[in-house]
Amino acid sequence: MSLFSLTTVGETLRIAAPYACAAVAGVWAERAGVVQIGLEAILLSSAFASVVGTLASGSAVVGVCAGIIMGVCLSAAHATLVHRTRIDAVVCGIAWNLLAYSGTRLGLRALYDSASNSPSIAAFRIGPTGNEGWQVLARVLCDPLSWLAFTAVVASPYVLNRTRLGLRIRAVGENPTAARAAGIDVGRTRLLALCISGAIGSLGGIHLAFDQHRFEAGMSAGRGFIALAAVVLSGWLPGRAALACVAFAFLEALQFVLQDIGQASKAITLAQMLPYAAVLVALGLGVGRRSAPGGLGRHAEN
């Protein structure tokens, strides 16, 4: 199997989806000026909610809705807390991450009496089975969640740059004081942006759970933080952030290829480091070093 086979393409897209959703979610939040390091919490809690929803109703669609609602609620709560109580958004985000880790574990124990994972779910199961390259790719391309994620990624730059909502979100993110002087309700605009952010981020979590056909404790495995790195790398541009995630996913997909080739285990371990090392190098080189939104983490003043 070569490095650039249909399998690699399919695997790259499959792996990229949760990262890209989280990254685009991060862009939405931070362009509105709300620091969001709780992407991990969004992924994890919406993954859990989608599995609970699916298991409870027997319908994957209901599961998806449950996941999205979870993501939106969490994100909206973040916006409200930060705006109303002026809690430091970084601290608040850390709290969400810790809460999501422990909360989903508690949920697993309470609902399914397990410390590690939920019962398996059927998810969508569309497309061919098998491990041939075209089958892997076709499965990814048939997955409705992939399409939802893709739509979110493609629509984000348009909405942010070309619509009334987008202009207002960017305005409150750039300078909340000036935005308010222009008659814009900073709190409401940020809340709306965070709801959208939560919805997009939750797609990533749902994708994660449906991909594994179950919920596993801590299954987000740091993806929210990698996504955050992609946000910074991209210079807070949604399209570029998603592309950075695809590049990262490609490096991760290479591991599977290497495993298939059957290299020595040390080489595989090294290969597993590759994506993370690449992120550090890219951040260090300051790829696309653009300044953060001017009003990031700031409130409107008199």
Binding site: R170, E174, A178, A179, A182, G294
Partner: peptide, 20 residues
């Protein structure tokens, strides 16, 4: 000044009363 520095002049002008 209550202006958004990275935005264009036109974006600043329309902000808050944007035609659709």
């Amino acid at each position: 000044f209550m202006l958004l520095e990275p935005f264009t002049a036109l974006e600043n002008v329309m902000l808050g009363a944007e035609p659709i």
